[in-house]
C-alpha cells in the first residue's frame, strides 16, 4: 500500500518529465530539417522554401534590448525603495499588495492596456517602442519581486556597519547593498526578460504584424518577433509552414536557453567571488 502510493507519486512526477521530452523530440523531428543558415538569414516569404526568421529575430532583439533598458532601472529602483526606504505605512502595504496582484494579471490584459495607452492615446502607433513599453509593464512586477528578495538577503549587519561609519542611506545602498544583491537581481531580470521574449499575445494586441520583409532601423518602425512569426506560420493550413513554425520554435528555444544559461553563469560567477 505504502509502496504503491510512492510509485503513484513517482509516476505523476514522470508525467511532467515525459511531456517535456515528447514536446522537445516532436519539435526537433519536425523542425530540424528546416534549420539552416539561409533560414536564419532570410525574410518572411509566401514560398515556404524561401522563408526565414531574419526580421523576427532582429525584431526580438530590438524588443529585448528596449524592454531591458526601460524595465530594469525602474524595477530595481522600486525594489530599493520598498526594501530600504519605505516606512511601514498603509501606502507601502498597498504598493506591495498591488505588485503581488499585478504579477497574476493575464498578459493579454497588458496587451489591451498597451493598445489603448501607447498605440492610441500616446499615438506611438504599431511600433517597436509600443511593444517594448507594453512588455516592460508586464515584466516589471516580476523583476521587482525578484530584486526585493535579493536585497532582503543582504545581511543587515553590513548595513549597520556602513551606517556606523557615517554613510548616508543612499551611500549604503550604492556601495554595499546593491553590489551584494546584484547577482540575484540580474538572475531575476534575465528570467523575466526571457519571459518577455516568449510573449505573443500582448504584442498581437499592440499590432506587431506577422509578415515583415525588412530589418527594423529605429524604435518607431513596425515589427514582428519570433513568437509572432511562429504563430503566423502555425495558423496557415499547409504542412510546409508548420515545419517552418517548428524550425522557428527551435530558434526561439535556443535564444531562451542562451539567456537562461547566462543567468546561471552570472549567478555562479558572483557567488564564487564572494
Amino acid at each position: 500500500m505504502g509502496t504503491a502510493f510512492m510509485v503513484l507519486c513517482g509516476a505523476a512526477t514522470l508525467v511532467g518529465v515525459v511531456a517535456l521530452v515528447v514536446l522537445l523530440a516532436d519539435l526537433a523531428l519536425d523542425g530540424a530539417p528546416r534549420l539552416s543558415w539561409s533560414f536564419l538569414n532570410s525574410f518572411a516569404s509566401r514560398f515556404p522554401e524561401r522563408a526565414g526568421v531574419k526580421a523576427a529575430l532582429l525584431g526580438s532583439v530590438w524588443i529585448l534590448a528596449l524592454t531591458a533598458l526601460i524595465a530594469f532601472p525602474v524595477s530595481v529602483a522600486a525594489a530599493i525603495y520598498l526594501e530600504e526606504y519605505a516606512p511601514q505605512t498603509w501606502v507601502t502595504r498597498l504598493i506591495r499588495l498591488n505588485i503581488a496582484n499585478l504579477a497574476g494579471v493575464p498578459s493579454i490584459v497588458y496587451g489591451i492596456l498597451g493598445l489603448a495607452l501607447f498605440v492610441r492615446t500616446l499615438g506611438l502607433d504599431r511600433s517597436i517602442i509600443s511593444g517594448a513599453l507594453t512588455l516592460s509593464l508586464l515584466i516589471m512586477p516580476v523583476i521587482i519581486i525578484a530584486s526585493q528578495e535579493a536585497i532582503r538577503a543582504v545581511p543587515s549587519s553590513i548595513r549597520e556597519a556602513a551606517y556606523g561609519l557615517g554613510a548616508t542611506r543612499w551611500q549604503v545602498v550604492r556601495t554595499q547593498v546593491l553590489p551584494m544583491a546584484m547577482p540575484g537581481i540580474m538572475t531575476g531580470a534575465i528570467l523575466a526578460l526571457s519571459r518577455a521574449v516568449g510573449e505573443t499575445a500582448p504584442l498581437i494586441m499592440v499590432g506587431a504584424v506577422g509578415f515583415i520583409a525588412f530589418a527594423p532601423t529605429g524604435v518607431f518602425d513596425s515589427f514582428t518577433v519570433l513568437p509572432l512569426q511562429i504563430y503566423n506560420w502555425i495558423s496557415r493550413p499547409q504542412e510546409e509552414f508548420h515545419q517552418l513554425a517548428a524550425a522557428g520554435i527551435l530558434v526561439l528555444l535556443a535564444v531562451l536557453l542562451t539567456m537562461n544559461a547566462a543567468a546561471i553563469l552570472l549567478r555562479n560567477r558572483y557567488q564564487s567571488r564572494r
Partner: peptide, 20 residues
C-alpha cells in the same frame, strides 16, 4: 527539469497541441 515546462513560451504549446 519540471520548471522548464513553465518557461516554454505558450505559442510552443499551441504548436504541440495542434500538431501532436
Amino acid at each position: 527539469t519540471l520548471e522548464i515546462l513553465a518557461g516554454i513560451p505558450t505559442v510552443v504549446y499551441g504548436y504541440f497541441a495542434l500538431t501532436f
